[in-house]
Design a protein around this nucleic acid. Structure first.
Length: 303
DNA sequence: TCTCTGATGTGAATAGACGT
DNA sequence: ACGTCTATTCACATCAGAGA
């Protein structure tokens, strides 16, 4: 592949992907491409070469970005630039002392620029139920199950989106069990009731469990859009009249905290929430010390 | 058929997850 | 802690049905 096409600031995703050494998910590719395009535009503006790029060009680029963007974005920019250089067997200009020093400085300046999701609590769930439980609007019925289900199963947004009717099983006594990654999670009576209400009101018989709804209560045939799930949580915010902002992870974060209050150990919560390491649940619980120690296990010992 | 409106979809920025 | 990859957030564009 000719590297000159990488000097255009408008390279498309497929071309970009075909040059990289490894397979990446679509979201990653979109980001890589976008980062690279930004860098090329910067280089054109300053009349310097983008590929291979000089260490100094990169240093100035990230220092400029740091004025507007967050640390996470800058880190990813560097990774994207590095990938393109690797693709053409060029020396990676991001792995130099000069760039590392610049990143270190930005890291210090921006130490606390990331914020953590607000958790939804049991009492908030109860209040939402109080407000909506008698509603016959399809949207109200749907959202109420979603809040409860995500809280009870510590669902990530994507996990909720991908649930199908096949993942929902009832036994002869009407108890409900949800299948997630080969595991079965029983539902509480309360949530089972809400789920049944949704199933009968929506008349769904197959396919995705939750769907988009237009304002005339028409069900969409495809799954709930990621953004829609986010909005469902923002809706909870509005109904509860809270200052804080919920997001798609709020149920997961809130449930983690409630479980911990009820005496569940971090290990148990980790398993319930399908985390690979206990670091995240620790962080949500606010057990900073233990969370740090978990991460410290891999920290290099000082000489 | 047009317009209104409230939803969904898209894409860039940022946060989370996980390996080491 | 830090590097890397992926998922989530959020502003904006776009869509589509109901009523005029």
């Amino acid at each position: 592949m000719d590297k000159s096409i990488f000097l255009s600031s408008d390279i498309d995703i497929d071309t970009f992907a075909s040059c990289l050494k490894k397979k990446y998910s679509r979201n990653s590719l979109i980001s890589f491409k976008n980062d690279w395009n930004n860098f090329v535009v910067f280089c054109q503006l300053h009349h310097v070469m983008a590929l291979p790029a000089s260490t100094t060009a990169i240093r100035i680029f990230i220092e400029k970005q740091a004025k507007e963007k967050k640390l996470a974005s800058i880190k990813r920019s560097l990774i994207s630039i590095s990938h393109v250089h690797n693709a053409f067997e060029l020396k990676d200009p991001t792995q130099t002392a000069q760039v590392k020093a610049a990143v270190g400085k930005i890291r210090l300046d921006k130490r606390d620029d990331s914020k953590q999701t607000e958790g939804i609590t049991l009492s908030m769930l109860a209040e939402l139920e109080r407000q909506l439980s008698s509603s016959v609007e399809l949207k109200d019925i749907r959202d109420l199950v979603i809040w409860h289900l995500m809280f009870e199963l510590l669902l990530k947004r994507g996990e909720l989106r991908d649930l199908t009717l096949d993942d929902v099983c009832f036994d002869e006594f009407g108890n409900c069990v949800i299948q997630l990654q080969q595991n079965y999670y029983p539902l509480s009576q309360e949530t089972t009731l809400l789920l049944n209400k949704w199933l009968s009101a929506s008349h769904l018989t197959e396919g995705y469990l939750f769907r988009g709804l237009d304002r005339h209560q028409n069900l969409s045939s495809s799954h709930l859009n990621d953004s829609s799930i986010y909005r469902i949580f923002r809706r909870a915010n509005e109904l509860l009249n809270l200052e804080v902002n919920f997001s798609g992870l709020s149920a997961r974060v809130g449930a983690t905290k409630e479980l911990s209050k009820c005496g569940y150990t971090v290990h148990e919560i980790q398993e319930l929430g399908r985390w690979v390491s206990p670091a995240m649940p620790n962080q949500y619980i606010g057990n900073i010390e233990r969370s740090e120690r978990q991460k410290d296990k891999f920290k290099k010992k000082p000489e």
